[in-house]
Design a protein around this nucleic acid. Sequence first.
DNA 1: CGTACGGTTGAATTGGTTCAATCGGGGTGG
DNA 2: CCACCCCGATTGAACCAATTCAACCGTACG
Lengths: 241, 241
Amino acid sequence: MIELNNPVIAKLSKVVGLSDGDNHIFNELCKTTILVNSRRDIISDGSRQNGVYLLLDGWACRYKTLKDGKRQIIAILIPGDFCNLHVGIYDQMDHAVGAITATTLAYVDRVQFDALTQSRLAVMRALRWTALVDESLSRSWLVSLGVRNARERLAHLVCELRERSSNIGLVKNNHFPMPLTQNDLGDSLGLTPVHINRVVRALAVEQLLKIERGTVSIINLIELRKIAEFDNNIFHQSLVY
Amino acid sequence: MIELNNPVIAKLSKVVGLSDGDNHIFNELCKTTILVNSRRDIISDGSRQNGVYLLLDGWACRYKTLKDGKRQIIAILIPGDFCNLHVGIYDQMDHAVGAITATTLAYVDRVQFDALTQSRLAVMRALRWTALVDESLSRSWLVSLGVRNARERLAHLVCELRERSSNIGLVKNNHFPMPLTQNDLGDSLGLTPVHINRVVRALAVEQLLKIERGTVSIINLIELRKIAEFDNNIFHQSLVY
DNA sequence: CGTACGGTTGAATTGGTTCAATCGGGGTGG
DNA sequence: CCACCCCGATTGAACCAATTCAACCGTACG
């Protein structure tokens, strides 16, 4: 059971006002935890799910694989992200969720999940908000894959991951952990690992960022955001209510 | 005011059980209609919205434009699709919605929308379902842009549009209206209109499909689905409840 | 009857892939 | 403690799918 430093609370309270009572709900959700080894599926494609998984520690990704083995990563999941919030409307997965590093997850049965979350309006809204932000990120990935070149795509992804890591307190002095391999980056950005390598090197030479031993060092954020045409509005950190 | 052949009802009742009372709600939503000319924005990027738009007639698209003018279409909207279901959680658009043809839209103020839809559980679930299917489609677009070649992308898009058109009763003898220009197709699939042209021609020569004067004729659906690795599960037509 | 827009085609170019080889470091077994 | 191994990163060279540039066609429409 995790009570302190719950990453969901960190992430959500940044934008949505949460009372102690709301926080209590999120801590209740994290009572049962599960460990998954790195490079294993947390939820496999096509499976039917009866509960909600919430990532508490480690990195994961949503992905789909084609018959010929080509894999497209659809989203990167970091602590505080839900793996399958749609449970309850439909249950069959249209994609897989895989652990990138070893991960710790909270698991809550669907019925219990609904009972807990529906008891508080702020919690329901917070969940709806995260789901909508995920959609927004998905749209920005589409733009990257559709109209940005390799350099711009990588810059955009790094800006996104930096911002999200920052929201859960994982950015220190412009460094943050980023356990994706160049192969993972390729599968995320629709590029080959070979080309990812060349772009990473080029960005390092240009003194924009460095990636080494699983950590990213941002050297020139301003310029990176310019290259990526990065717009913070995709995170929707100003709300209506 | 539109009462008969409401496309939202056609689309939703295909999967979600809707009573007469539920249908009544959807018809209420369509009381106020708005016309938008072709190639005009229905909702512009960055704008703040206070009501929900529902496409009743014509085609539209979600899109984002980069500073250099490159446009990425994020989703195609056909009758029965909502333009901005997220209103109420956040209001500022992170993308635009543009009319492709002349369109008829229903407009409902946010407060009224919530009042109407929240009165019936089936309606709320149906709305949540469409939102989740939209997300699923967005994921399948991401896969297309990431790992499919031009031929596969086009085949996939055509299969998707055929299925969705079919759900609102617009497919007749393997023909359906499809008012996207080759430029629109390019902006949807992350390809140039020139290359779209070549691929369209090639698929016609191979007796797979024909596109002429705004209608698609599917000649060999089986083969098209094979090329695209098209999986009907992305529509989530089997539900939990 | 001109004009504008969408579709069509050819030729040259290019961003990214493919294939192949090498490097380097962390973990493991003897 | 060291040799080995494996995985991920790195680099070069040849290749190709899609782009770019440019011209031309057909037709709908004011």
